[in-house]
Structures are given as C-alpha cells and as structure tokens.
C-alpha cells in the first residue's frame, strides 16, 4: 500500500554523549523522535527520550509469586494431603524441607515469565524480521529516526537541527 509508506529523516551519530545532548536539544525544539537505534545500551537515553521506567521487574515479581504459590500448593497437596507419609521423623507438613524447591520454582517462573514478557512486548521472535533504518546501527552508529508526517517542522529544518547538534550525516528513508 502506497499510502502506508512513511518518510523518515535519519540523524547518524558517532558518539553516545553527543547523541544524548542532541536528543535533548532536538526534543526541546519540539521535534517528535520516532525511535533511536544503537549498537549498545546508552545510559540515560530513556530519560532523554522521555520513556518511562520498564515495568518488567513488576512482571518478574508477579511471576515469581506465582511460582512460590505453585510450588507450595504442589508439595503440600502431594506430601500432606494426597499421600501423607512420615519421612525422617518429621510431621506431615515438613515446611523447612519445602524451602529449596519453593525457591527454585520461584526463580524459574520469575525468570521465564519476565523473559517471555520481554520477548512478546518487544516483538522479538525467531521468525521476526528486523526493520533496519540503517544497517550500521548494529555496528558503530547511533541512528535517530524522525518521522516527517508526525512533525510540524519540515525536512530542511529538521536536517539543519540535527546537523547543528552534532550528527555526522543526515539521511532520508522511506519505510512502511
């Protein structure tokens, strides 16, 4: 579909500190940044872009609690309710012996739940195709992608602004 093709201006940055200053500056001018692509995690970039803190740690906690409950329910049902047995002279609810398995199940569900959530919300999957604005962004360049249709400023103004804030080159690209 021709109308779904969007026009982007791409600012290419070499240095992460220049990049961070540029993002802050460009956003102050009222430019709406589509996304920034980097070869490595740049510290402070989420703050500069105004992203909220990821809530994945909350997900991890909830999955972990699920694991704890699941492990305890399983063991109490099996060892205390379904087939009670005296093992090592302990009573039918030998809680201390449940601790290791409870801990492991908590960690297991927490880790898998969080990573699964991360893969789903970030749309990462083996059959996923990466939409690369600039192939160098997995090598040594930081790419600031700005969608023209979503901005009041025109192409030349954005280009000028990016150049002024330290972009080594400014390119254009159409993506669907």
């Amino acid at each position: 579909m021709a109308d779904s093709i969007k026009n982007f201006v791409l600012g290419v940055f070499e240095d992460e500190d220049v990049l961070l200053k540029a993002i802050t500056k460009v956003r102050k001018e009222g430019v709406n940044i589509h996304e920034v692509y980097s070869p490595f995690p740049v510290h402070g970039i989420e703050k500069a872009l105004g992203y909220n803190r990821s809530r994945l740690s909350i997900a991890a906690f909830l999955f972990g609690m699920t694991g704890t409950c699941l492990a305890l329910t399983m063991m109490i049902y099996m060892m205390t309710i379904d087939w009670p047995m005296i093992i090592g002279g302990k009573d039918f609810l030998p809680f201390p012996t449940f601790i290791p398995v409870t801990f492991e199940m908590t960690v297991l569900l927490s880790a898998f739940g969080m990573v699964g959530t991360f893969l789903v919300i970030s749309d990462l999957k083996p059959w996923g195709k990466a939409k690369m604005f600039d192939i160098r962004s997995t090598d040594d360049k930081h790419i600031v992608a700005i969608e023209l249709e979503k901005n009041k400023l025109n192409k030349t103004k954005i280009t000028k602004l990016l150049k002024a804030s330290g972009a080594s080159e400014v390119n254009e690209k159409q993506m669907d």
Partner: peptide, 12 residues
C-alpha cells in the same frame, strides 16, 4: 529474533 537495537528495547 529480529533485533533492531531500538532504545525502548535496549531499556527493557
């Protein structure tokens, strides 16, 4: 997995 290095993904 279709990784593109977006800042949002890096932050997560």
């Amino acid at each position: 997995f279709g990784w593109d290095g977006a800042a949002k993904t890096w932050s997560r």
